[in-house]
Deep mutational scan, measured.
Amino acid sequence: KTEWPELVGKSVEEAKKVILQDKPEAQIIVLPVGTIVTMEYRIDRVRLFVDKLDNIAQVPRVG
């Protein structure tokens, strides 16, 4: 699995749990929505963009 659209609106902790069940090797990085990030693709990275309430604001994707 490479993306988790069902996690939008969920808490960071809930999202981490689901992603690590699907992809145990994932390196999860939590960032505020709108953060500028590098464009290199990494198969072991999932970025979680969160709103001010620490809920997932964008679809988490591998990369």
Rank of each mutant, 00 (worst) to 15 (best):
K1Y: 09
K1I: 12
K1D: 05
K1W: 05
T2F: 10
T2Y: 10
T2S: 12
T2P: 02
T2E: 11
T2L: 11
E3L: 04
E3Y: 06
E3Q: 07
E3V: 07
E3K: 06
E3F: 05
E3P: 00
W4E: 00
W4D: 02
W4P: 00
W4I: 00
P5Y: 00
P5R: 03
P5M: 02
P5N: 00
P5E: 04
E6T: 05
E6W: 04
E6D: 12
E6A: 05
E6K: 05
E6N: 05
L7A: 03
L7E: 00
L7G: 01
L7M: 05
L7F: 01
L7Q: 03
L7H: 01
L7C: 05
V8G: 01
V8P: 03
G9L: 01
G9N: 04
G9H: 02
G9R: 01
G9Y: 01
G9Q: 01
K10C: 14
K10H: 08
K10V: 12
S11G: 11
S11H: 15
S11N: 15
S11L: 02
V12Y: 04
V12R: 06
V12G: 02
V12L: 10
V12C: 09
V12F: 04
E13N: 11
E13M: 10
E13P: 10
E13H: 11
E13R: 10
E14T: 12
E14Q: 11
E14M: 08
E14H: 14
A15R: 01
A15L: 02
A15P: 00
A15V: 03
A15N: 01
K16D: 00
K16W: 05
K16A: 08
K16Y: 05
K16M: 07
K17F: 08
K17L: 08
V18N: 05
V18I: 13
I19W: 00
I19D: 03
I19K: 02
I19S: 01
I19C: 00
I19T: 02
I19Q: 01
I19P: 02
L20P: 02
L20S: 11
L20N: 10
L20V: 08
Q21F: 09
Q21V: 09
Q21G: 12
Q21N: 09
Q21A: 13
Q21Y: 06
D22G: 04
D22S: 08
D22P: 03
D22H: 06
D22V: 05
K23A: 12
K23P: 01
K23Q: 12
K23H: 11
K23N: 13
K23D: 06
P24T: 05
P24W: 04
P24K: 06
P24A: 05
P24I: 00
P24R: 04
E25L: 09
E25H: 12
E25P: 02
E25Q: 11
E25M: 09
E25R: 09
E25T: 12
E25D: 14
E25N: 15
A26I: 14
A26T: 10
A26R: 04
Q27S: 11
Q27P: 03
I28A: 03
I28H: 00
I29D: 13
I29F: 08
V30S: 05
V30E: 06
L31N: 09
L31E: 13
L31P: 03
P32D: 07
P32Q: 09
P32E: 07
P32V: 01
P32S: 07
P32F: 03
V33A: 11
V33Y: 11
V33C: 06
V33G: 03
V33Q: 10
G34L: 03
G34F: 03
G34N: 14
T35M: 07
T35G: 12
T35Y: 04
T35H: 09
T35R: 10
I36K: 14
I36E: 15
V37C: 14
V37G: 14
V37R: 13
V37P: 14
V37I: 11
V37Q: 13
T38M: 08
T38K: 15
T38L: 06
T38N: 12
T38F: 06
T38G: 14
T38V: 06
M39I: 09
M39P: 15
M39H: 15
M39N: 15
E40L: 05
E40H: 09
Y41V: 12
Y41R: 12
Y41K: 14
Y41A: 14
R42D: 14
R42K: 13
R42E: 15
R42V: 14
R42I: 12
R42T: 14
I43A: 13
I43H: 13
I43W: 13
I43F: 11
D44G: 09
D44V: 04
R45L: 15
R45Y: 15
R45N: 15
R45W: 13
R45K: 14
R45G: 13
V46I: 11
V46T: 02
R47E: 15
R47P: 15
R47V: 15
R47G: 12
R47W: 14
R47S: 14
R47M: 15
R47H: 14
R47Y: 11
R47I: 15
R47C: 14
L48N: 00
L48C: 08
L48F: 04
L48I: 06
L48V: 08
L48E: 02
L48R: 00
L48G: 01
F49H: 04
F49P: 02
F49W: 12
F49K: 00
V50T: 10
V50W: 00
V50A: 06
V50Q: 01
D51I: 00
D51Y: 01
D51Q: 01
D51G: 03
D51V: 02
K52Q: 14
K52E: 13
K52F: 09
K52T: 11
K52P: 12
L53G: 12
L53W: 14
L53P: 04
L53T: 13
L53D: 14
D54Q: 15
D54F: 09
D54L: 09
D54K: 12
N55P: 02
N55H: 11
N55G: 04
N55W: 02
N55D: 03
N55F: 12
N55R: 14
I56S: 03
I56R: 03
I56L: 05
I56A: 00
I56P: 02
I56F: 03
I56D: 00
A57S: 10
A57N: 05
A57C: 09
Q58E: 14
Q58L: 13
Q58I: 10
Q58D: 11
Q58R: 13
V59D: 00
V59E: 06
V59S: 05
V59I: 11
P60N: 02
P60R: 00
P60I: 01
P60S: 01
P60T: 00
R61D: 03
R61C: 12
R61N: 08
R61L: 07
R61W: 08
R61H: 10
R61T: 12
V62R: 03
V62H: 06
V62A: 12
V62D: 04
V62T: 12
G63F: 08
G63T: 10
G63Q: 14
G63E: 12
